[in-house]
């Protein structure tokens, strides 16, 4: 994973002096050949469904009488949006994932960075073994990982709870105060090693002689890590950070699976569950579409803010 390349030539991305000398239309056919295959499919599987969703969010289904006649689709304007924005469920669910993101993302990224620094330090042995072990959970598909942890959380199946009880410490991973962080643990378990690997790749791309000079000056390993290594893996932090933010907004597997075993996880625990429930249980596709559109806007705003902060970093 050569994210280290981010550090080396980022400045080159936006200015291509060599090309300025030529008139751009010389490359039109090449540009078309490279961009259009992806672009056409992108329009087809991303843009069209988004437009469809936006359209759908303006309609609602109406019945009459006993409700057994054919339901009629009616244009309701921004009614679905007002309903979403004025429902406490939407705001609770949104607040929850923001809290989740504020807690889980930094913990996971810092944990990944620490592990990457340790593996990169001169003190580490069996680096390749650890690297594989840490990365292993990423090979477990999200749903299966959630199911697996559900067994470890379930009050009557969990060996942890059994152990806790035997030493007189009652553990409850599913209580209303804890369950969000139990989910955060699942996400962290799956993705920490993956993020660690991205950061480790970035670290290992730093020329070793930089450390050697510092070592000759008597700097400790800790100091080298903090003042030489960390600043150089910032681009890797940007990449993993944006990925994690998007993942948080789309959080679905973990709450959906824990919903089965935890009373504290209701059917609208996170916005994606709210939308799915509206669509598939209440047949309220308009509302589901409105929630999706709002969610995309939130994701966009947060990512732009994060990006801005990241861009402010000195090169």
């Amino acid at each position: 994973m050569s994210t280290e390349t981010l550090t080396t030539r980022r400045a080159g991305t936006d200015s291509v002096p060599a090309l300025r000398r030529r008139r751009p239309n010389q490359f039109v056919s090449a540009i078309v050949i490279f961009i259009v295959p992806f672009g056409a499919l992108f329009l087809f599987v991303y843009v069209a469904p988004i437009l469809y969703s936006i359209g759908q969010s303006l309609f609602s289904i109406r019945s009459s009488g006993l409700g057994f006649g054919a339901p009629v689709t009616t244009f309701v304007g921004v009614d679905n949006y007002t309903r979403a924005l004025s429902s406490s469920e939407f705001w609770t669910a949104l607040g929850r994932i923001l809290l989740f993101g504020a807690g889980q993302v930094p913990v996971m990224l810092i944990g990944a960075l620490v592990l990457a620094l340790l593996l990169d330090s001169a003190a580490a042995r069996w680096v390749s073994v650890y690297r594989v072990l840490f990365f292993l959970p990423y090979a477990v598909p999200g749903v299966i990982a959630a199911v697996l942890w559900a067994y470890l959380y379930s009050p009557s199946l969990s060996p942890f709870v059994a152990f806790g009880n035997s030493v007189g410490v009652p553990l409850d991973f599913l209580s209303p105060e804890i369950v969000l962080w139990s989910m955060a643990n699942i996400t962290t378990w799956v993705f920490m090693g993956y993020n660690m690997l991205i950061m480790l790749s970035a670290l290992q791309a730093i020329p070793r002689d930089q450390f050697e000079a510092a070592r000759l000056d008597g700097a400790s390993e800790w100091r080298i890590a903090l003042s030489i290594k960390v600043p150089q893996v910032r681009p890797a932090l940007v990449l993993t950070g944006i990925n994690s933010i998007i993942g948080t907004i789309q959080l679905f597997n973990e709450p959906q699976v824990l919903h089965v075993i935890a009373n504290s996880v209701d059917s609208s625990y996170v916005p994606t569950m709210l939308a799915m429930g509206a669509a598939f249980i209440k047949n309220d596709f308009g509302f589901a579409a409105a929630v999706s559109v709002l969610l995309a806007i939130v994701a966009g705003v947060i990512s732009i803010i994060y990006y801005r902060i990241a861009m402010r970093n000195p090169e």
């Binding site: 679905f252 994606t272 799915m276 966009g300």
Partner: peptide, 11 residues
């Protein structure tokens, strides 16, 4: 940025 699960049904 779009939750891909939500694009699945229109798709």
């Amino acid at each position: 940025l779009i939750p891909s699960a939500l694009l699945t049904v229109p798709l």
